[in-house]
């Protein structure tokens, strides 16, 4: 028996449970309720209401990614630095939340932000007016940042740790000031990690529906919410499928875009 036959069961499984289901999505996207060919659902994706939802999803995911990058990059750098890399447990503390169920984490943020939650209780104790925190875009972004920050820190940390420190020393010896060392040497060398971090934060953020549903109190829809609603509440599978295809296109486009920036094509600094 040839060794290559071992890939048989795997190939069969993947075709059966990833390719076949995609064909169903395609089928529903291009048919109407009676099963006849129709592009109506596809056209519905281009209507102003849908476009608004789409833009809001991208906006929130983008803000979340930027905040994660701004907060996460220095953290990754400090954790990888000589002073702190000896405390291995410290690094563990930063990625530990990744292992905690993400709904439990979101549930935890709810208890902070709610109308009668911890933040408002503290504010009232000190005589301030309670704030409306939950149900706002800010709350959703906070929830996303809180959930996805470790996913930004981890790959950047890995990239920085792998960096040849002699290159940095060489730049210093040749008279570059710290800012220049960072902009010309450290940052460019860490770009694969940054890209991997951006992917790991932006992708789940742009497709989420649980976070926006729980922290946005259903006040506004994101693309993920819209897909979920079409399938489980409106039972409009055709429009839901069209939206799913739409989302796939966004993901493929953004991955393509990110890969173009990535100088080390193919050999990505791994997520694990």
């Amino acid at each position: 028996m040839k060794r290559s036959y071992f890939s048989g069961p795997y190939a069969l499984w993947m075709v059966l449970f990833t390719i076949c289901p995609m064909i169903f999505v395609l089928y529903y996207a291009f048919t109407n309720g009676d099963g006849g060919f129709s592009v109506q659902s596809i056209l519905e994706c281009l209507e102003p209401t849908t476009i608004r939802v789409f833009l809001r999803s991208v906006k929130l995911a983008f803000i979340c990614t930027v905040i994660c990058l701004i907060l996460g990059y220095p953290a990754a750098q400090i954790l990888a630095s000589k002073d702190f890399s000896k405390y291995k447990l410290l690094f563990v503390l930063f990625i530990l939340p990744m292992w905690m169920n993400f709904l439990l984490r979101t549930y935890a943020t709810m208890s902070l932000l709610e109308r009668r939650g911890i933040i408002n209780t503290i504010l009232e104790r000190f005589g301030f007016e309670p704030l409306t925190l939950i149900g706002t875009e800010g709350a959703v972004v906070f929830g996303m940042v809180y959930n996805y920050l470790p996913f930004m820190i981890l790959p950047i940390h890995t990239a920085l740790k792998k960096m040849d420190t002699r290159v940095i020393e060489a730049a210093q010896d040749l008279g570059a000031n710290p800012l220049r060392v960072f902009t010309r040497v450290i940052f460019p060398l860490s770009i694969p990690g940054v890209i991997s971090g951006i992917t790991m934060v932006f992708m789940p953020a742009v497709t989420t529906f649980a976070i926006s549903r729980l922290l946005g109190s259903g006040n506004f829809m994101l693309l993920g919410d819209m897909i979920e609603t079409q399938f489980l509440e409106m039972h409009d599978w055709s429009f839901g499928s069209a939206l799913s295809m739409f989302m796939m296109v966004i993901i493929v486009l953004s991955i393509g875009l990110l890969n173009r920036i990535d100088p080390s094509k193919g050999e990505r600094s791994g997520n694990w």
Partner: peptide, 20 residues
């Protein structure tokens, strides 16, 4: 083919399997 489920958004994977 193996990259596909890893890059696909969870919601699309879930929905497509549900349809099937």
């Amino acid at each position: 083919l193996s990259y596909l489920p890893m890059t696909m958004p969870d919601i699309v994977t879930g929905v497509s399997l549900m349809l099937m």
